[in-house]
Design a protein around this nucleic acid. Structure first.
Length: 212
DNA sequence: TGCCAGGGATTAG
DNA sequence: CTAATCCATGGC
């Protein structure tokens, strides 16, 4: 329920600005299982290092859920070492792969409702909100908006104070509720943050005071 | 050289 | 319930 009369809602303005700046960009390449693996590997890690690990797995012909399970623990750890946290992540990849296998494979996931599937993902050890939503949005083509640290940072600059689940809800009420829109907007946020936002504070942040 | 990266789980207060 | 701390490598 957006109130009228007070200041304009900065979120539509922010989304419009990002859309004009970046338009139709391609993002998060790879098939469903490679995306699922990448979603774990990219936790607190630069994407360039994730790509190296995915390349390593592809060379081994193991960049898939069954492929992950076919490797010994030390082989898996070695392949993903360059992403950091490799002991934890190797366990998380195994847990995810085994969970999908145990539930009956990806075809079973396709039949689950969005909320059911999201809860299932969140129940897995090592899958939190961002990883779950990334898998939903980019691997399984579901309309679940991804909130990451970048998005919260940009929104903070733009005068949108919500975080986490509340911020996710805000994006989902403003955007056209389609997977493609969710993908695009999240991609814009990340590209924007890479271009303009440092870790501690924004550099030349162009979203500040959007509604003034 | 020190800081941070497209988080999440665990422990502490 | 919020705030630290750990996990670990690689790049600037």
């Amino acid at each position: 329920m957006a109130e009228k009369g007070s200041a304009a809602d900065p979120l539509p303005a922010l989304i419009g600005l990002l859309r004009e700046s970046y338009g139709e960009i391609a993002w998060w390449p790879g098939g469903p299982e490679e995306v699922m693996i990448g979603a774990i590997l990219t936790q607190q890690t630069k994407w360039e290092n994730v790509e190296r690990a995915l390349d390593n797995l592809n060379v081994l012909d193991c960049c898939s859920l069954e492929g992950v399970l076919s490797l010994s623990l030390s082989e898996l750890e070695e392949a993903i070492r360059c992403t950091g946290f490799f002991r934890i992540k190797s366990q998380r990849l195994r847990a995810l792969s085994m969970a999908v296998r145990d539930v009956g494979g990806r075809s079973v996931l396709e039949k689950m409702s969005l909320s059911e599937l999201r809860e299932w993902l969140l129940s897995l050890h090592g899958v939190g909100p961002e990883t779950a939503d990334s898998i939903l949005c980019y691997a399984l083509n579901r309309p679940s908006y991804v909130i990451d640290a970048y998005t919260e940072r940009i929104c903070g600059c733009a005068g949108i104070p919500e975080k986490g689940a509340a911020l996710k809800a805000r994006f989902e009420e403003v955007l056209v509720p389609e997977n493609k829109e969710y993908r695009l907007c999240h991609a814009w946020c990340v590209e924007y943050a890479k271009d303009y936002c440092g870790a501690k504070r924004c550099n030349e942040c162009i979203v500040k005071n959007l509604n003034e």
